[in-house]
């Protein structure tokens, strides 16, 4: 189901960011699709503790055998790079000699 409800006259934007909002902590869910593959981020959910988070992760993200293994990690434990600093942080673009295609190998040598 999907659809956005049309605006009504006088509709106001709700205020967000109330500090008294309580609730269960958030967890990030990683699912291994098949043996031999990495766990990949599937989404997030709320749960009071790790065991319940695992249970919820199964119910929310693997209802159709999408995986053979699930990890849950507290969202607060994720440390992320700053997207605004991405250019400086991921400097490899300045070092094309790190790429295989930088080197020219004569055709006669064949596939390398």
């Amino acid at each position: 189901m999907a659809y956005s409800v049309p605006h009504l006259d006088g509709e106001q934007d709700p205020q967000f960011g109330r500090s008294d909002a309580r609730g269960w902590p958030m967890w990030e869910v990683f699912v291994r699709q098949r043996r031999g593959m990495s766990h990949v981020h599937a989404g997030s959910l709320h749960a009071p503790d790790a065991e319940t988070a695992l249970q919820h992760a199964r119910d929310v993200y693997t209802r159709r055998v999408e995986g053979v293994s699930v990890w849950v990690v507290p969202s607060s434990a994720i440390v992320a790079s700053d997207p605004d600093e991405a250019d400086a942080f991921f400097e490899a673009i300045e070092k094309p000699y790190r790429a295989a295609t930088y080197y020219e190998i004569p055709d006669e040598v064949g596939q390398m």
Partner: peptide, 13 residues
């Protein structure tokens, strides 16, 4: 709800 929460709102709100 998870997608909405990435925009800075809480589930309870």
């Amino acid at each position: 709800y998870s997608a909405a929460e990435t925009l800075g709102v809480t589930r309870d709100e």
